[in-house]
Computed example of a mutant assay.
Amino acid sequence: MNNHEIDYKLYGDDMQFVEVELDPEETVIAEAGSLMMMDDQIKMETIFGDGSGSQGGGIVGKLFGAGKRIISGESLFMTTFTNNGQGKKHVSFASPYPGKIIPMDLSEINGKLICQKDAFLAAAKGVAVGIEFQRKIGTGFFGGEGFIMQKLEGDGIAFVHAGGTIHKRELQPGETIRVDTGCLVAMTGDVDYNIEFVSGVKTALFGGEGLFFATLRGPGTVWIQSLPFSRLASRVFAAAPERGGSKGEGSIAGGLFDILGGDRK
């Protein structure tokens, strides 16, 4: 193992957090802002780069790793948490919205995972958080998640977060499924990923499911989420009173006040 061998425990159901157990001098990396709590004698440090700790070229290599994260739309910085004490210590990271935290052992999936750019939560030190350029330009322009997706490489544990219920699907060689672009969480590196236009003008304009969906062809493994954050946010935004939503949605009184133009205190 080139990565630090961390132990962990998941807590909660819909609003989960992961508690990572660190032996002395073990380190975990995480996205900035994901920390929930940590024990005493854990040193927190902000770093440039991809978190692998193996960039060459000194400052040039670190700037290159940080630049890759900027291209993928992530923060310039990552945070490391190192146990500087004598015994075992714990540090916990919380999910940013309702959903599930998925532990990924990269050594079991050929050392590579491709995921949405906002799916990565934390990982053992040594896991490189980079970018994955899609082979087809159409995938980039119309994929819903942009031309670039995140790429996690190494042989350690990484934690990925997604919304709603998570469904793991094993694809056989040649087997193909079509997925809403926002519902795709992650896939192994051997899955062929492309974007397909929704056929039929009426379906595209009035179907309510967008103009494009992802086609995933096996062999490989994919993880799909039932509630993308963008979908949840759009419903909340649409229901806000300032955007025409009802102040008392679901109630007779609320509808009456809307009709009369009243404002409840």
Rank of each mutant, 00 (worst) to 15 (best):
T79G: 00
Q55S: 11
I71Y: 03
M78D: 00
V60P: 00
G58V: 08
K68A: 09
F77H: 09
G67L: 05
G73M: 08
N83P: 12
S54N: 03
G56Q: 10
G87T: 15
K62W: 02
I70Y: 03
R69P: 10
G73I: 08
N83I: 13
I71R: 08
A66L: 08
L63P: 05
S75M: 03
I71A: 13
S72L: 13
F64L: 13
G58Q: 03
G67C: 01
F81H: 11
K62H: 11
K68H: 09
I70S: 07
R69G: 14
N84S: 12
L76G: 06
G58H: 03
L76C: 07
Q86C: 12
M78K: 09
G67V: 01
S75W: 04
Q86V: 14
L63Q: 06
T82V: 09
I59W: 03
Q55L: 09
G58C: 08
G61T: 06
E74Y: 04
T80Q: 05
G58P: 10
G61S: 10
G58I: 06
Q86N: 14
F77L: 12
G67R: 01
T80E: 02
M78W: 01
G65D: 05
R69S: 08
G56M: 10
F64D: 08
K68W: 03
G87C: 13
I71E: 04
G67E: 00
K62C: 05
M78Q: 04
G67F: 07
S72H: 04
V60I: 12
G56T: 12
K68Q: 15
F64G: 14
L63N: 06
K62Y: 10
S54V: 07
F77Q: 03
G65W: 01
